[in-house]
Measured scan of single mutants.
Amino acid sequence: CHSECLGNCSQPDDPTKCVACRNFYLDGRCVETCPPPYYHFQDWRCVNFSFCQDLHHKCKNSRRQGCHQYVIHNNKCIPECPSGYTMNSSNLLCTPCLGPCPKVCHLLEGEKTIDSVTSAQELRGCTVINGSLIINIRGGNNLAAELEANLGLIEEISGYLKIRRSYALVSLSFFRKLRLIRGETLEIGNYSFYALDNQNLRQLWDWSKHNLTITQGKLFFHYNPKLCLSEIHKMEEVSGTKGRQERNDIALKTNGDQASCENELLKFSYIRTSFDKILLRWEPYWPPDFRDLLGFMLFYKEAPYQNVTEFDGQDACGSNSWTVVDIDPPLRSNDPKSQNHPGWLMRGLKPWTQYAIFVKTLVTFSDERRTYGAKSDIIYVQTDATNPSVPLDPISVSNSSSQIILKWKPPSDPNGNITHYLVFWERQAEDSELFELDYCLKGLKLPSRTWSPPFESEDSQKHNQSEYEDSAGECCSCPKTDSQILKELEESSFRKTFEDYLHNVVFVPRKT
């Protein structure tokens, strides 16, 4: 048989008469490798580009789960590009990614509803959504962080984005990388972005840091009482949809009607710091009717980097990364020049730590249904340095008659930039024990000054392991946590139920 035959053949030295091919099969003959313009397919066939392209389009058009959109890589027609490569849609070739590779997620039936953290986790790592997304989240724990972890990498949506009755959302900033909504599939009414009845939605994105392009379709905003109209108009300008909307697409009466839409800028007039305090004062603000001013709200939190936005980490279910302080308005003076500047002394802060701070007014709604208010920009203030805590785990070892090696770990709280350490030492008198000992005694162990690591005695271990207080009263049991108490109650309830079950099964009433 021919060298490319495997198993047997019907005619000697003829690659077209093989029972099976050793390498690849091409047009009725066995070959060692697939010549151009053919590609290896499933490690035994040679196919042309049209064959591989037909497989790709067949799966793409069917949208069946589990099928493969075949691509070409290293002269092979394979189910998908290997790690580190992405497909070129024009020629199906796998090309190296520039940075992290995109991950295209194809949605069944063309859309997916995100109504819980669990459903959001199914899209973790996706960068391109081939379909439409509907966000409908009523509640949950730590929602802002969970949504950002699972949806934060999405850069492109081919269909539309719909935010509907998501009472738990305060902001859409968890879509931190969303840059493009194509609108290839539109919501009824030709809408590519749809926001309806979101009672706590206050911000779409921080438009000073976020760009969003909507290729096709219109915007729809109705019944978002805490979303200011200025935020919607800003989205029109940034996304390129200005002029597409009709009169009733953006409701003037049901958007922002319960919001404090600040239209003035508060400026800080005085800032002073110490290692654990920050004193702030800002310019006074009074609405047209000074009785509408209820006070100020001061927001602050630790910020290692200057990239904080107002609604980071917030949701309507209680999660809030900001510390909020309510401040009463100052006494009002008739003389504008003698107006008191409101302020606040922030206490209990960490030394040498940068804080993000902003302040906003708290006002009631005027009778004319106009909203007044003022808010400052987010500023960054760093507390002063102070003395560091003591170095940890000092170790001293003498390696000769004239040297001592000293080692330690950095302090747990540096409280500033540590530039150097101060080492103090003092000579001590020799131990009298060394002169009084009889060095001729056998088995004498000389006193040693070398360091030995501390260890816990058996008594201390027994005390720590004991669940009861000892007789001397030195140790006591740790208080039980809520989960331990709940577990004990469940076990007790189970024992009672099981005992009742045994009584009912074992003891049967005697027939009379």
Score class of each variant (00 low, 15 high):
Asn248Arg: 02
His341Trp: 13
Phe193Ser: 00
Glu156Tyr: 04
Arg124Ser: 12
Tyr300Phe: 10
Asp115Ser: 08
Pro394Leu: 10
Leu201Ala: 07
Ala145Leu: 10
Phe299Glu: 14
Leu180Lys: 12
Pro225His: 06
Thr371Leu: 10
Arg291Asn: 05
Lys234Trp: 07
Phe290Ser: 13
Tyr305Ser: 11
Leu298Phe: 15
Phe174Asn: 02
Gly217Cys: 04
Asp289Cys: 02
Thr113Ile: 05
Tyr223Ser: 10
Tyr380Ile: 04
Ser260Thr: 08
Leu266Arg: 01
Val128Ala: 15
His222Arg: 12
Asp115Lys: 09
Asn200Ser: 05
Leu147Ala: 14
Trp322Leu: 05
Ser319Met: 06
Pro304Lys: 03
Asn198Cys: 06
Glu262Ser: 11
Asn334Ile: 15
Thr386Trp: 13
Tyr305Thr: 11
Lys407His: 07
Glu155Ala: 03
Asn141Asp: 07
Tyr380Gly: 11
Pro225Ser: 05
Asn136Leu: 14
Gly348Lys: 02
Leu212His: 05
Leu331Ile: 08
Thr127Arg: 13
Trp282Tyr: 02
Leu252Thr: 07
Gly140Pro: 13
Asn320Phe: 15
Gln199His: 11
Asn198Trp: 00
Gln199Arg: 07
Gln382Ala: 08
Gly256Thr: 02
Arg244Pro: 14
Leu153Ile: 13
Val325Ser: 14
Arg291Asp: 01
Glu156Lys: 07
Ile405His: 04
Trp207Val: 11
Ser158Cys: 14
Trp322Gln: 02
Ile137Arg: 00
Ile114Asp: 00
Trp322Asn: 03
Asn200Trp: 14
Pro391Arg: 01
Asn263His: 08
Ala251His: 12
Thr383Ser: 08
Pro330Gln: 09
Trp352Met: 08
Gly256Val: 10
Lys375Ala: 09
Gly295Phe: 12
Glu148Thr: 05
Phe175Tyr: 03
Gly139Ser: 05
Tyr194Cys: 11
Ser402Asn: 14
Thr386Met: 10
Asp335Glu: 14
Arg244Cys: 10
Val238Lys: 12
Ile357Glu: 11
Cys317Tyr: 09
His222Ser: 11
Ile378Glu: 05
Leu280Tyr: 01
Lys301His: 13
Ile214Cys: 12
Asn320Thr: 09
Lys242Ile: 03
Lys301Phe: 04
Ser171Trp: 09
Ser119Gln: 12
Ser173Tyr: 13
Pro330Met: 05
Ser400Trp: 06
Leu265Thr: 07
Phe311Gly: 02
Thr113Tyr: 12
Leu161Tyr: 02
Asp384Cys: 09
Gln339Trp: 05
Ile157Met: 09
Arg369His: 06
Gln339His: 11
Arg176Trp: 15
Trp344Ser: 07
Ser171Cys: 12
Trp286Met: 06
Cys261Phe: 02
Ser274Tyr: 11
Phe296Gln: 01
Arg370Asp: 04
Leu345Met: 08
Ile137Gly: 04
Arg124Pro: 07
Leu172Thr: 09
Phe175Asn: 01
Phe268Tyr: 12
Gly110Lys: 13
Gln403Ala: 15
Asn130Ala: 04
Lys234Arg: 14
Trp286Thr: 10
His233Met: 05
Ser389Gln: 05
Ile405Ala: 05
Tyr372Asp: 03
Gln354Tyr: 15
Asp276Val: 01
Glu368Asn: 11
Pro411Asn: 00
Glu187Leu: 10
Trp282Leu: 07
Ile188Asp: 12
Gly183Lys: 01
Arg176Asn: 03
Trp286Asp: 01
Thr241Leu: 09
Arg244Asp: 08
Asn130Cys: 08
Thr361Val: 07
Glu283His: 07
Leu345Ser: 11
Cys317Asn: 02
Gln199Asp: 12
Ile232Leu: 13
Ile357Thr: 14
Glu368Thr: 11
Lys409His: 03
Asp249Gln: 12
Asn263Lys: 09
Leu345His: 15
Tyr191Lys: 08
Gln314Lys: 04
Asp292Thr: 08
Ser173Glu: 08
Met346Arg: 06
Arg332Pro: 08
Trp352Leu: 07
Trp352Glu: 01
Arg176Lys: 10
Lys112Asn: 10
Leu266Phe: 06
Leu153Phe: 13
Leu349Lys: 02
Ala120His: 05
Ala316Thr: 14
Ile232Pro: 14
Ser333Asn: 02
Lys162Ala: 05
Cys261Gln: 02
Gln306Met: 01
Gly348Tyr: 02
Lys360Met: 10
Glu264Phe: 08
Phe358Met: 07
Ser230Thr: 05
Asp289Leu: 02
Leu151Ile: 06
Ile129Asn: 00
Arg369Cys: 04
Ile250Pro: 08
His222Val: 04
Arg247Val: 10
Ser401Val: 13
Val308Ser: 09
Gly313Val: 10
Ile327Phe: 13
Phe358Val: 06
Arg332Asn: 11
Ser274Val: 05
Asp197Asn: 07
Asn255Leu: 10
Tyr191Asn: 12
Thr113Leu: 10
Ser321Leu: 07
Asp393Ser: 15
Glu283Thr: 04
Leu298Lys: 00
Asn198Pro: 00
Gly243Val: 02
Ala149Trp: 10
Lys267Ala: 08
Lys218Ser: 15
Asp257Met: 05
Cys126Trp: 01
Val104His: 09
Asp257Pro: 03
Asn340Val: 09
Glu156Val: 00
Arg347Trp: 08
Gln314Val: 13
Asp384Gly: 15
Glu237Met: 14
Arg138Lys: 12
Leu345Gly: 06
Gln339Asn: 12
Gln245Tyr: 07
Tyr223Asp: 05
Asn263Leu: 08
Leu107Ser: 10
Gly295Trp: 09
Arg332Ser: 14
Asn190Ile: 03
Ser396Tyr: 00
Ser192Val: 06
Leu161Trp: 00
Lys337Asp: 15
Leu143Arg: 07
Ala149Asn: 11
Ala385Lys: 14
Lys242Trp: 14
Ile378Lys: 09
Tyr160Phe: 09
Ser274Cys: 12
Lys162Thr: 01
Pro342Ser: 10
Leu169Ile: 06
Thr127Tyr: 07
Gly295Met: 13
Thr118Ile: 02
Pro336Ile: 08
Ala149Asp: 11
Thr113Gln: 07
Arg247Phe: 08
Gln382Ser: 14
Asn307Gln: 05
Val359Thr: 09
Pro394Glu: 04
Ala385His: 03
Asp206Phe: 12
Val390Ile: 09
Leu143Pro: 07
Tyr194Met: 12
Pro288Trp: 07
Thr273Leu: 06
Leu227Asn: 00
Ser333Met: 11
Ser166Phe: 05
Tyr160Glu: 03
Gln258Phe: 08
Gln245Ser: 12
Ser338Trp: 15
Glu148Lys: 11
Ser400Tyr: 13
His341Met: 09
Thr273Phe: 12
Pro351Thr: 10
Glu237Ala: 05
Ile405Phe: 15
Asn200Lys: 12
Leu186Ser: 10
Gln216Ala: 03
Thr127Ala: 07
Ala356Asn: 01
Leu178Pro: 00
Arg244Met: 11
Arg332Lys: 10
Leu108Ala: 08
Gly189Gln: 01
Pro284Ala: 00
Glu148Val: 14
Trp205Leu: 11
Leu151Thr: 02
Ile154Cys: 06
Glu122Trp: 06
Val359Ala: 00
Ser119His: 05
Arg291Ser: 01
Val170Pro: 05
Asp312Asn: 04
Ile181Leu: 13
Ile327Arg: 07
Val128Gly: 14
Cys126Lys: 01
Ser192Thr: 02
Ser398Leu: 02
Lys218Gln: 02
Thr127Glu: 01
Thr254Cys: 08
Asn399Trp: 10
Asp367Thr: 08
Phe358Arg: 12
Gly243Thr: 13
Asn211Pro: 04
Leu143Val: 08
Leu108Ile: 11
Gln245Trp: 15
Arg138Leu: 03
Lys177Val: 09
Leu151Trp: 01
Arg281Cys: 11
Asp249Trp: 14
Pro388His: 00
Pro411Trp: 03
